[in-house]
Simulated scan of single mutants.
Amino acid sequence: MAQTGAKRYFKNFSNEDFILHLSILLLCFFPVVLSFLMVTNGKATAFKLGGYFFKIGLPCIFKAATGYNCPACGMTRSFIYMSDLNISAAWAMNRAGVLLYLFCLLQIPYRFMLIFNRKIPFQRIVTAFGIVFLIVVCFVTVGQFVFQFF
């Protein structure tokens, strides 16, 4: 017996995979979208709404205490530069931010397809590639963090 659209949709809400894919989609979607609404001069970050700028951000406690960048320092500014297609400035700000931005961009259509039960060719390979990509992001983050001490 065929299920109606509402019943199938409700069934997906109780599915753990659906919740996982929706969570990852939202975690990737919102930072990318917000980065289009923000501006930076390399030092400060602000939301631009209409003709008004609203400065945002908190000082990094790790940097204030040690004088060194934490692994996440420059990540928001890197996302903003990537949204402006200024890849060299994004790379200079935080290399892992560039890679994480690319990861988020690739996850958005992938998670939409999984949520709406689309068949994805080579799904295991795509999933493995995503995991390897995140491991590379972690290594770049740790490497960038450690390298500043030398």
Rank of each mutant, 00 (worst) to 15 (best):
M1F: 10
M1D: 01
A2K: 06
G5L: 15
A6R: 12
K7A: 14
Y9G: 10
N12G: 11
N12R: 15
N12Y: 13
N15Y: 04
D17V: 06
F18G: 00
F18S: 03
I24T: 08
L26M: 15
L27S: 10
C28V: 06
F29P: 02
P31W: 01
L34D: 02
L34M: 08
L34F: 12
S35Q: 01
V39G: 01
V39C: 03
N41T: 00
K43M: 08
A44G: 06
F47E: 02
K48R: 10
G50D: 02
G51K: 05
G51A: 02
F54N: 05
I56E: 04
L58F: 13
P59A: 09
C60G: 02
I61F: 15
F62K: 00
K63S: 10
A65F: 12
T66F: 12
T66S: 13
Y68N: 05
C70D: 05
P71F: 05
P71S: 06
S78I: 07
F79N: 02
Y81H: 01
L85W: 15
S88H: 06
S88R: 09
A89I: 03
A89F: 03
A92I: 04
A96P: 14
L100E: 02
L102Q: 00
C104L: 04
L105A: 05
L106W: 12
Y110C: 07
Y110P: 03
M113T: 11
M113D: 12
M113A: 15
F116L: 11
N117L: 14
R118C: 13
R118P: 06
K119H: 14
I120P: 04
I120E: 06
P121F: 13
F122H: 14
Q123W: 14
R124K: 15
A128K: 09
G130S: 15
V132F: 15
V132T: 14
V132P: 09
L134V: 10
V136G: 08
C138H: 09
F139N: 01
Q144P: 03
Q144C: 06
F145H: 01
F145M: 01
V146G: 01
F147A: 14
F150V: 06
